[in-house]
Design a protein around this nucleic acid. Structure first.
Length: 896
RNA sequence: GGGCGUAUAGCUCAGUGGGAGAGCACUUCGUUGACAUCGAAGGGGUCACUGGUUCAAUCCCAGUUACGCCCACCA
C-alpha cells in the first residue's frame, strides 16, 4: 500500500466520521477503562440555526477535551442538543410564511401556527447537527435532546410548579421592556442600549389658572443670575409623545427655584388635564431645567417616582406601539404610531407657542436584541422569578471555589451581575415555547399545576382557561444540565454524569445562561451544574471586528472546512488562544501542517518503519533516545496545557514538536541511520521512527482527528481506531539528558556550518571539508558519535584535524570547540571580517552586562546564589566564545 | 457615569523578577530520494509613556495616554 501524496480531506472526512459513528465511538462511556466520568453539555444552538464560527470554535474546544479524556479512558459524555429559541425561531418561521406568501401567524391562529413551527423544526432541525458533525464533533448523538422534547417539557413545567409553590415565581403588574415588533415582554438582558442621535425638546407647561411666580436662578456663590416672573414650568424630554401620559411634574425638594410652586397644578398642554408639581429625590437640579415630567406608564424612572408619590399612570400605547383608541389620548392622536404621534405632538406644541427650543443630543435608546426596534416600557402583567431568593447559592458556589470560572476576570463580571440582580421576567407573549402551566377560572383565581387535569381538580372541576403566555427560552435552557440527563427521574445517567465537569461557552451568555443555570440547578436539585466554566472570546475577523451578517465580514466555517479541511479549521481555532482574529493565512498554514505530518508518515512508510512492540526504554542510539525524550516532553506539555485549558499552548507545542523536532531534525537524522550497515541500528531506528510518529498521531488526535485517524489506519492494521487508542503515558525517566545535550550540540554545530556556508555564498550543493582545531572531550564524543549526520546535514566532504587554521579559512565556534572551513577559492574576506565583528559585538555587550552585575557587591550580596552562579557560568561561556572568535580574527589579519 | 481588559517584531499573538520569543509576512539561496502546501540562512523590537519598589523591571506597584468590551434610568 502506498500512501497518497496528500490527505484528501474532502473525500475522507465524511467516511472517517461515519466509521466512528458506526463503531459507536462517541457513545457515553465508550472506551471507558476507569470509573471517573468526564461530562460536557453542549451549549444548545438554535434548532433552526446554521453553524457559524462561534459554534465551530466552541465545539472544537469541547471536542478536544472530550477526545483527550476519552482516550485517557474516562467515562465520557458529550451531551448534544438544540434549543427551541422562542423568539428567534418564531421570527424565522413568520418570515418563511411571509416569503412563501402564506397566511401569517395571526391568520393561522395559535394551533396551526405551532404546527408550522414544528414542521419547520422537523425540516431544518438537523441542519446544524449535520454541520456540527462536519467539524468532527464526537457528541453522543444517540442522546440528542431538544428543549421542547416531551421529557424536557415535563421537567420545565415541574420546575415552574415547584417554584410557584415555593413563591419563587410570582405574577406582577409592573413596567416591563416591551418589544412592539414581536409584541411581547422581554427581559432586561434582551435589551441593547445604543447611543443614537436624538433631540431634547424643551417645553413650557403653563401653570393652572394663569398663576405666576418669581423664578430666581443663582450661581454657586449664591449671586442671583436670573430673576423673572414666570407663568410656566420648563420641562425637557426626548420623547414628547409621552407627555400625553404625564401624571405630574417633579422637582427636587432642595430646588429653591420651584419652591414657590410646589403643590400647585399645571395645565398639561394638548390634554384637558391638570397635574400637580411634586417633589421627589429623583430629579437632578443641575440637569436641564431641574423639572421632570412624570410618565409612570412609559418610563422606568418615572414609574418609580409615580409609585412613591401615588401618581396615576396612564398607559398610552397598544402592544404594537400605537397610541390607544381611548379617552386618555386626545382624539387627534388616537391609533397613531408612536413616532408619527411624536411629530404631531411637536407640531402642536410649536403651534401653541410652548416650545422654547430643541437641542441635538446623543441619547441612549433601548432596542430589542432580536427585533432591533425601540423598546417601549409598558405596564403589563408578567411572570417573574424572584431571583433575589435563589441568587445567593450561585454566588457562594463561585466565591468558595466549588465552581471555577476561567479566566478569573470573568468571575467579577459574574459577581457584579448576580449581586445586583433584578427580578427575571420569564413570560413571553409568544406562541412558540413552553406554555405557562397556570390556569384561571372565571373569577380570575390561579391554579398552577403540571397538567390541565390537575388544575381542574384543584379548581374543584370548574372549567378553566390556560395562561396564553410561554416561558422565556432561557428558563428552559437554564435546566439544560439536569433536563438532558432525564431529571426529574433519577436516571442512571443523572447519577453518573451530574454534576458535569466543564461548561465551555462564550462570554456573551454568562448572564443569559451560565448564571441562570447556576441559580436554577442549585434551586432545583441543590447541586452545582458544573465544576468549571471556561469562558472564551468571540471569534472576530482578521481586523478584530465582530463577525456579523450586516457587516458582511462573516467567515463561514463550512466554507473553510470545504477549502482547508476540518482539521485545519480546528487547529486554527485551537491555536488562536483567547483572542480570536481569524485569517485565511493561518488556515493555510495549519492545512500545510497537516500535509507535513502526512509526508513524515509517508517517509516512515517508504523506509519500512512499522509500529508495534517497540519499547522506548530499549533504545540505544543517541538520536533515537533524543527523539524519545522530546516526545515525552511534548506529551507533558500537551497534558499540562489541556489540563489548564491552554488550548493554544497545546496546539502550538505540538506544532513545534512535529514540525520543528520530528520533521526538521529527527527525520533528517534518521536518514543516515536507516542506511546503516548495522542491521540492529536500522531496526531500532525504524521502530523508533514508527513509534515517534504514532505518538504524534495520538497527541494530535484531539485537535486534528481526521487526518490522524486516517494515517493511523493507513500505517498499520490496528487493534482499535485511534479515537479509542490509549492516550500515551510515558515516564519522565525516558528523558535522557545526555542524549539531549549531545544532539543539541550537534544541531548547534550543523546550524553554525550552514550559516557560514550561506553567508560565504558556498553553493548549496557543494560538499566542503571541515577542520577541527580544538575540541573538548564532550565535543569529541558528540562529534564522533554523529559524524555521519553532521557530514550529511552540513554537507561536509570530510573532517580533518589541525593545530591552526590554514589561510583563507572561516572559523566556527561551538560550545567547547573551534572548527574552521577552508574556503580558499570562495571566501569573501570582507564578509568574514564583518561576520566576526558582528558576533564579537553582540557577545561583547553581553559580557559587559554580566561583568557589571558580577562586580556589583549588592548584586552578589542580595541575589540568590543560584542566580549568581548562573551568571558566572554564562560569563565564562561567553568569554570563551569571544576568545575563539578573536583567534579567528587574528588569523584573518595574518592573511591580509 | 461605573467596571473590566489590552498595549511586546510589518501583522496576529505567546511569554518570564536575572540571557526578548513563535507563526505569518519580508530578503537571499535551493530540482539535497518524505514534503516547493517544501528546505536552508537572514533582516526586523527603547517590550505604549512617566514615576516608584528591587541588587536587578518587558514582567510587580502607581499614574498617564490610546484602544476594546461589559454594565447603567440622567429626563
Amino acid at each position: 500500500m502506498a500512501m497518497e501524496k496528500n490527505f484528501d480531506a474532502a473525500a475522507a472526512e465524511a467516511r472517517i466520521y461515519a466509521s466512528w459513528q458506526d463503531a459507536g465511538a462517541f457513545k457515553a462511556g465508550a472506551n471507558a477503562s476507569r470509573a471517573e466520568t468526564f461530562t460536557i453539555m453542549i451549549p444548545p444552538p438554535n434548532v433552526t440555526g446554521v453553524l457559524h464560527m462561534g459554534h465551530a470554535f466552541n465545539n472544537t474546544l469541547q471536542d478536544i477535551l472530550i477526545r483527550w479524556k476519552r482516550m485517557q479512558g474516562f467515562d465520557t459524555l458529550w451531551q448534544p442538543g438544540q434549543d427551541h429559541a422562542g423568539i428567534a425561531t418564531q421570527m424565522v418561521v413568520e418570515r418563511q410564511l411571509a416569503e412563501a406568501g402564506n397566511e401569517g401567524r395571526k391568520e393561522l391562529g395559535r394551533e396551526r401556527f405551532l404546527e408550522k413551527v414544528w414542521e419547520w423544526k422537523e425540516k431544518s432541525g438537523d441542519t446544524i447537527i449535520e454541520q456540527t458533525k462536519r467539524l468532527g464533533a464526537s457528541c453522543d448523538w444517540s442522546r440528542n435532546r431538544f428543549t421542547m422534547d416531551e421529557g424536557f417539557h415535563d421537567a420545565v413545567l415541574k420546575v415552574f410548579v415547584d417554584m410557584y409553590n415555593k413563591d419563587l415565581i410570582y405574577k406582577g403588574n409592573r413596567l416591563v421592556n416591551w418589544d412592539p415588533k414581536f409584541e411581547t415582554a422581554i427581559s432586561d438582558l434582551e435589551v441593547e442600549n445604543i447611543e443614537v442621535d436624538g433631540h431634547m425638546w424643551h417645553f413650557k407647561y403653563p401653570l393652572a389658572d394663569g398663576e405666576t411666580y418669581e423664578y430666581i436662578e443663582k450661581d454657586e456663590d449664591g449671586n442671583v443670575t436670573l430673576r423673572e416672573t414666570r407663568d410656566y414650568i420648563a420641562i425637557a424630554t426626548t420623547r414628547p409623545e409621552t407627555m400625553l401620559g404625564d401624571g405630574a411634574v417633579a422637582v427636587h425638594p432642595s430646588d429653591d427655584r420651584y419652591a414657590p410652586i410646589v403643590g400647585k397644578m399645571v395645565h398639561l398642554p394638548l390634554c384637558d388635564r391638570l397635574i400637580p408639581i411634586i417633589t421627589d429625590e429623583y430629579p437632578d437640579p443641575d440637569f436641564g431645567s431641574g423639572a421632570v415630567k412624570i410618565t409612570g406608564a412609559h418610563d422606568f424612572n418615572d414609574y418609580a417616582v409615580a409609585k412613591r408619590n401615588d401618581i396615576p399612570m396612564y398607559p398610552l400605547m397598544d402592544t404594537r406601539g400605537h397610541m390607544v383608541d381611548a379617552d386618555i389620548v386626545p382624539a387627534a392622536y388616537r391609533k397613531m404610531d408612536r413616532f408619527v404621534c411624536r411629530k404631531a405632538v411637536i407640531a402642536d406644541i410649536n403651534a401653541l407657542g410652548l416650545m422654547t427650543h430643541v437641542e441635538d443630543k446623543k441619547i441612549m435608546q433601548p432596542f430589542g436584541d432580536r427585533s432591533k426596534v425601540v423598546i417601549e416600557p409598558m405596564l403589563t402583567d408578567q411572570w417573574y422569578v424572584d431571583t433575589k431568593q435563589i441568587v445567593q447559592p450561585a454566588i457562594d458556589a463561585v466565591r468558595n471555589g466549588d465552581v471555577k470560572i476561567i479566566p478569573e476576570s470573568d468571575r467579577k463580571v459574574y459577581f457584579h451581575w448576580l449581586e445586583n440582580i433584578e427580578p427575571w421576567c420569564i413570560s413571553r407573549q409568544l406562541w412558540w415555547g413552553h406554555q405557562i402551566p397556570v390556569w384561571y377560572d372565571d373569577a380570575g383565581n390561579e391554579y398552577c399545576a403540571a397538567s390541565e387535569e390537575e388544575a381542574i381538580a384543584m379548581a374543584g372541576g370548574k372549567s378553566l382557561r390556560r395562561d396564553p403566555d410561554v416561558l422565556d427560552t432561557w428558563f428552559s435552557s437554564g435546566l439544560w444540565p439536569i433536563g438532558t440527563l432525564g431529571w426529574p427521574e433519577n436516571t442512571p445517567e443523572l447519577q453518573k454524569y451530574f454534576p458535569t465537569d466543564v461548561l465551555i461557552t462564550g462570554f456573551d451568555i454568562i448572564f443569559f445562561w451560565v448564571a441562570r443555570m447556576m441559580m436554577m440547578q442549585l434551586a432545583v436539585v441543590d447541586k452545582i451544574p458544573f465544576h468549571t466554566v471556561y469562558v472564551h472570546a468571540l471569534v472576530r475577523d482578521e481586523r478584530g471586528k465582530k463577525m456579523s451578517k450586516s457587516t458582511g465580514n462573516v467567515i463561514d466555517p463550512l466554507e473553510m472546512i470545504d477549502e482547508f479541511g476540518a482539521d485545519a479549521v480546528r487547529f486554527t481555532l485551537a491555536a488562536m488562544g483567547r483572542d480570536l482574529k481569524l485569517s485565511k493565512a493561518r488556515l493555510t498554514g495549519y492545512r500545510n501542517f497537516g500535509t507535513k505530518l502526512w509526508n513524515a508518515a509517508r517517509f516512515a512508510e517508504m523506509n519500512d518503519c512499522k509500529p508495534g512492540g517497540f519499547n522506548p526504554e530499549t533504545a540505544t542510539q543517541t538520536v533515537n533516545k533524543w527523539i524519545i525524550s522530546e516526545t515525552v516532553r511534548a506529551l507533558n506539555t500537551t497534558n499540562k496545557s489541556l489540563e489548564n485549558y491552554r488550548f493554544s499552548d497545546a496546539a502550538m507545542g505540538l506544532y513545534a514538536h512535529v514540525w520543528g523536532k520530528v520533521c526538521d531534525w529527527y527525520v533528517e537524522f534518521a536518514k543516515p541511520l536507516l542506511q546503516s550497515d548495522d542491521a540492529a541500528v536500522v531496526a531500532e531506528t525504524r521502530a523508533t521512527m514508527a513509534w515517534a510518529i504514532d505518538q504524534c498521531l495520538m497527541l494530535l488526535h484531539p485537535i486534528m482527528p481526521f487526518i490522524t485517524e486516517q494515517l493511523w489506519g493507513d500505517i498499520a492494521p490496528r487493534q482499535k481506531m485511534l479515537i479509542h487508542t490509549d492516550w500515551p503515558e510515558l515516564p519522565d525517566t525516558l528523558i535522557d539528558t545526555d542524549a539531549d545535550r549531545e544532539m543539541n550540540w550537534v544541531i548547534a554545530l550543523i546550524e553554525s556550518i550552514r550559516s557560514v556556508r550561506v553567508e560565504m555564498r558556498v553553493p548549496a550543493g557543494a560538499k566542503i571539508p571541515m577542520i577541527q582545531l580544538q575540541l573538548d572531550a564532550a565535543g569529541q564524543a558528540a562529534l564522533k558519535g554523529n559524524t555521519l549526520l553532521i557530514h550529511r546535514l552540513a554537507r561536509l566532504l570530510d573532517i580533518s584535524l589541525a593545530d591552526s587554521a590554514p589561510k583563507d579559512a572561516v572559523t566556527i565556534t561551538v560550545e567547547g570547540g573551534t572548527f574552521c572551513l577552508p574556503l580558499a577559492d570562495i571566501i569573501d574576506l570582507g564578509a568574514e571580517k564583518a561576520r566576526l565583528a558582528k558576533a564579537i559585538d553582540k557577545l561583547g555587550k553581553e559580557v559587559g552586562g554580566l561583568k557589571g552585575k558580577l562586580s556589583n557587591d549588592r548584586f552578589l550580596a542580595k541575589a540568590p546564589p543560584q542566580v549568581v552562579a548562573e551568571q558566572r557560568t554564562r560569563l565564562i561561556a561567553v568569554e570563551e566564545d569571544i576568545l575563539r572568535i578573536k583567534v579567528a580574527q587574528e588569523n584573518l589579519e595574518k592573511m591580509t
